[in-house]
């Protein structure tokens, strides 16, 4: 079973990430049993029937805008944002917008090219579940990777995890 990181722990996770084959129309729906993340296009084609379904999440690719999901967030439990390459940083802004602009309280999962060297930034931007690609890390490496959440103790900026910048958080003596 794929591993994810949630609340600072490595756990098994059964959710599937549904990917449309090339040429497959989003209208042709064949949802697997159990928890699943569906592409934005599938959600948009079927939201009337799928809204509120247990275990349903929607995933967005990096060029897709979280704004397109803004109206629907009440009926979605989880959103996954894909990193096609770890150097594609759009999803950091996407996650931050979901949390701060649209008030999304559900799970925001990082999927795709997820490396431990990004964990700190991801958690700061509002991701609460991180899913490195299957086989990316051994179990031991994944446990070791948890240390990356603590790379920095007191960062300068405000972010989703901390509404105040350091200059408001701390008394900094001149």
């Amino acid at each position: 079973m794929p591993k994810i990181i949630k609340n600072g722990c490595v756990i098994d996770d059964a959710a599937q990430i549904l990917v449309l084959d090339e040429g497959q129309a989003p209208e042709a729906l064949n949802l697997p049993e159990g928890p699943v993340f569906i592409p934005l296009a599938v959600w948009q084609a079927h939201k009337n029937t799928l809204a509120g379904r247990a275990g349903l999440g929607v995933w967005l690719d990096s060029h897709e805008s979280v704004e397109d999901l803004a109206e629907d967030l009440d009926s979605i439990g989880a959103v996954a944002l894909n990193f096609p390459k770890f150097t594609d940083g759009r999803a950091y802004s996407g996650a931050a917008l979901l949390r701060t602009r649209y008030g999304f309280k559900g799970e925001i999962r990082a999927i795709g090219d997820v490396m431990r060297d990004q964990f700190f930034f991801m958690q700061r931007c509002g991701f609460d579940v991180l899913q490195p690609k299957a086989g990316k890390y051994t179990d031991t490496q994944l446990e070791a990777a948890l240390a990356s959440f603590k790379d920095f103790s007191s960062p300068y900026q405000a972010a989703v995890d901390e509404a105040s910048p350091l200059f408001r958080r701390a008394q900094r003596a001149a």
Binding site: G89, Y92, C125
Partner: peptide, 13 residues
Amino acid sequence: RQWSTLHPEFAFL
């Protein structure tokens, strides 16, 4: 400088 140092949202522009 401080604001931009390790800004979590803008490390991969």
